[in-house]
Write a protein that binds this DNA or RNA. Structure first.
Lengths: 244, 244
DNA sequence: GTCGATTCAATAGTGATATCAATGTGTACA
DNA sequence: TGTACACATTGATATCACTATTGAATCGAC
């Protein structure tokens, strides 16, 4: 999986400190860093410091100008779709806000992705999707939550990847992290809800049978539950409702 | 607008050549570049070549390993949401494929964004949205297509920005480019369709009145037209149907 | 003799340092 | 109030030593 970002190079290690620090607000927008400061703080050469800044710059987290320094940009400028940035936010205080944004995004994208998959998925992958939904049924009933979650993740990843839209597919990793992240946030019920299981099954069969509107509706049902749980969290305590 | 990426620094100039070259397939996946080669080809120092590679690396366009070189990664690895990458594709042969992906993405995201805006937009911005839709009516009837397009872009940008979801908002620039790009692709009718104009108006009033479902439906109508035009392009010649 | 493990050297990226150029800010001065 | 200058800071280059990986050459065993 090569999950965590590569720590093998120095500039990545610097990045792994400065990036989260910016995201966490340790350096607020408008704050000015200098290359010399970075060299000192992390004990690295100018070469390495500059490379780290270049990457931050390409994410629009900072802008670098002569005589001024490296300025932290306003949140609205950030490349919020950058996977690395998303991970930094998920790892910090922004976690719950980031999960919320991502869940809304997911709820928007997955239904159309399911529809597209019904039209464009490879035959073998349609079968695979059906298998996954059956395994989810089984694992769900037996209460094997961890294995269930992994199959759930694979299910949603497969739908996105088979949508035939590279941008939908590009969200697969992020959606996987959202699904994995919900467990730690106590958004998972002890047993997956029957309703959700049935909806997954409907998505799978609709994709197999090439019925885009059915697939879209079923997926919309899955996502609606998830978003509802999110809204519910806003107004009261989590009681662990749905799953997706 | 600061449209074109910054050409002021050397590494950005290298990036502006290498990036599009990779995207265009001049260096196919698996192709190995070397820092020395980049230095030679672009007449820059090692530092500059390295910085360019770092940025490409953060976009997952390439991976860099000692003793191996800088390897172009497979398309499926790319950070397809990176604004710079999107622009490179829009500027090259991938243009029409990229417009298609983005249009599908947009069709997925804008309706929920409109619903969210109906719940969360600032009062002043709700008024602004209404103003924009009225101006669009006027400009559309008078056939002032260029001004119309700019208001259209602002309309959709405003909805996304007022959705209260940073990730929806993060698509504003990209959607703006799609809307601007359609003109060059002959996807715009000589006169905006009445239907589309009315739908924009419905979105604006629904957002003002705090009616998420109405806003979502109306926006879905707008997007459906756009996607239909896209599908139509697939099977026949463009006759310039809708707009959004 | 073939197959496998080990060794080793060539090679390309990685990191550090020194140095100069370019430039915009802020201040001091007219 | 306007202008010019000093200087801090990034931008860029050149060059050094280090490190890790590959792939071939070598060695050994079956």
């Amino acid at each position: 999986m090569a999950r965590s970002r590569d720590q093998s190079t120095l500039h990545n290690r610097v990045l792994a400190h400065v990036g989260p620090a910016i995201v966490a607000g340790a350096y607020p927008p408008g704050h000015v860093l200098t290359l010399e400061g970075l060299e000192r703080d992390y004990g690295v050469s100018r070469t390495v410091a500059r490379e780290a800044v270049r990457v931050l710059q390409s994410m629009r987290l900072v802008s670098s100008r002569p005589r001024v320094g490296v300025t932290v940009l306003d949140t609205t400028q950030w490349s919020v779709f950058d996977p690395q940035l998303i991970r930094w936010r998920l790892a910090g205080d922004e976690r719950s806000a980031q999960l919320r944004s991502l869940t809304e995004l997911r709820a928007a994208v997955e239904p159309p992705a399911a529809a597209a998959a019904a039209l464009r998925a490879e035959p073998a992958q349609r079968e695979r999707l059906l298998e996954l939904s059956e395994m989810m049924q089984d694992l769900g009933q037996r209460g094997e939550l961890d294995a269930f979650m992994h199959h759930d993740i694979e299910f949603h990843r497969l739908v996105l990847e088979q949508s035939g839209n590279e941008m939908f597919a590009g969200l697969a990793d992020v959606v996987a992290e959202v699904l994995a992240g919900r467990a730690e946030h106590h958004l998972m019920p002890a047993h997956p809800r029957r309703e959700a299981l049935r909806l997954h099954s409907h998505v799978a069969t609709a994709v197999r049978d090439g019925l885009p509107q059915v697939a879209e509706s079923a997926m919309r049902g899955i996502c609606a539950e998830v978003v509802a749980a999110l809204d519910h969290l806003d107004h009261s305590v989590s009681d662990g409702t749905p799953h997706g």
